[in-house]
């Protein structure tokens, strides 16, 4: 440890450069991860706020919830097996305010449950983000799907679906608007069960049925994965170059009896110290950046996620450094003795 630190202090510039690159990559990775989480929440907080469980929709809807219609017999079957089952429907739509301004929203309705707010007929509870458009409690909003207008009763915190604000409405209003008495989905906190002509999804699978969700997440996760690979390669290249310069010293140390594991440990300690310092700064900044980011920017980075990513960086750094450390085990004392040195 002392030896590793002394070397880093002696060659401050080269370790500072590596540390800065690792910091920048880890910071970028954390920011993108924060954006990925934020976007994912912005896309589907309605589903993400619900507990883990199973979603059922009609098999013939082919994973498109808005084509699904749960029949009375299917509903009865689900209710018999899962007493707590909630039946719900989701439809994209729009609302017009008193000034004639239209707002894209997602209508959500459900049977009595503990996950969504209770709404009376003719009332709306909207996601709070719509307040930015100047909509306030008590406002009258209309839709061309229904003759009567809605009254905004209250706002809910972070309830979005497919990037639009959710509007919780009473089932009767939903049936009236969409001329259907059937619900599209059933949700239960129980584990998945085979039900005739029904497809079952866990939360993650259901999220992927939301248009654009998996495409969005896949691109961001690909970037994150690449950044991890790049940081691993950086460690490998950096320590390879450092090791090449030190092969003479390593050879002499091996000649006088220093164990290969001691030399590898020197490299690992340096890798851990660089990664640790870089990550502490990157994680702190990635948390502090929320103070300066515009509110419209979806950004969510839990410390737990940061910790998992930090562990990822340590593992990838260790692999990268160890791959380059193969040279250390191969170095022959004789080669070093035959060269000049300090």
């Amino acid at each position: 440890m002392k030896m590793a630190w002394k070397e880093m202090m002696k060659y401050k510039t080269r370790y500072l450069i590596l540390g800065s690159i690792i910091f920048l990559i880890s910071f970028l990775t954390l920011i993108i991860s924060g954006l990925a989480n934020g976007l994912s929440f912005d896309n589907a907080s309605l589903v993400k706020n619900m507990p883990e469980g199973t979603y059922y929709m009609e098999s013939k809807a082919e994973e498109q919830y808005n084509f699904s219609e749960i029949s009375d017999s299917q509903r009865e079957t689900i209710e018999n097996s899962h007493g707590d089952a909630v039946f719900m429907s989701i439809q994209m739509g729009e609302l017009e305010d008193e000034d004639g301004q239209k707002h894209g929203i997602t209508y959500v309705t459900a049977t009595d449950n503990e996950f969504f707010p209770d709404v009376e007929k003719g009332e709306l509870i909207l996601d709070e983000s719509i307040q930015e458009d100047g909509i306030e409690a008590g406002d009258e909003l209309s839709t061309n799907l229904m003759d009567d207008s809605f009254t905004v009763r209250d706002f809910a915190k972070q309830e979005k679906f497919s990037h639009s604000a959710v509007a919780f409405i009473h089932p009767d209003d939903f049936m009236n608007m969409y001329q259907s008495e059937k619900y599209q989905l059933a949700f239960t906190e129980d584990e998945e069960e085979d039900i005739d002509e029904m497809s079952a999804f866990n939360q993650n699978q259901f999220l992927n049925t939301i248009p654009s969700y998996s495409a969005e997440m896949l691109s961001l996760n690909m970037i994150i994965a690449f950044l991890f690979v790049i940081s691993g390669m950086l460690f490998a290249i950096f320590f390879y170059m450092i090791n090449v310069q030190k092969l003479g010293t390593y050879g002499i140390l091996k000649a006088v009896g220093v164990k290969t594991i001691t030399l590898l440990r020197l490299m690992w300690v340096q890798m851990i110290l660089i990664t640790l310092i870089s990550l502490v700064i990157a994680i702190s900044l990635s948390q502090l950046i929320t103070l300066v980011l515009p509110e419209e920017m979806p950004y969510q980075l839990a410390l737990e996620t940061s910790a998992i990513m930090a562990a990822g960086f340590f593992i990838i750094g260790f692999i990268g450094a160890t791959l380059s450390g193969v040279q250390i085990s191969k170095v022959e004392p004789m080669e070093a003795i035959n060269q000049g040195g300090a």
Binding site: K2, M3, K6, E7, M9, K10, Y11, G248, T249, I252, L253, A255, V256, G257, V258, K259, T262, A336, I337, G340, G341, A342
Partner: peptide
């Protein structure tokens, strides 16, 4: 080699980032 032998080469081959005292400390640990 570590415990019973000592080595002096044509070049000193000291560890470039260790002080004189630490060169000896390293050998004692080895």
């Amino acid at each position: 080699r570590a415990k019973e032998f000592g080595f002096v080469f044509q070049h000193a081959h000291l560890v470039p980032f260790l002080s004189v005292k630490d060169q000896l400390n390293l050998m004692i640990d080895t």
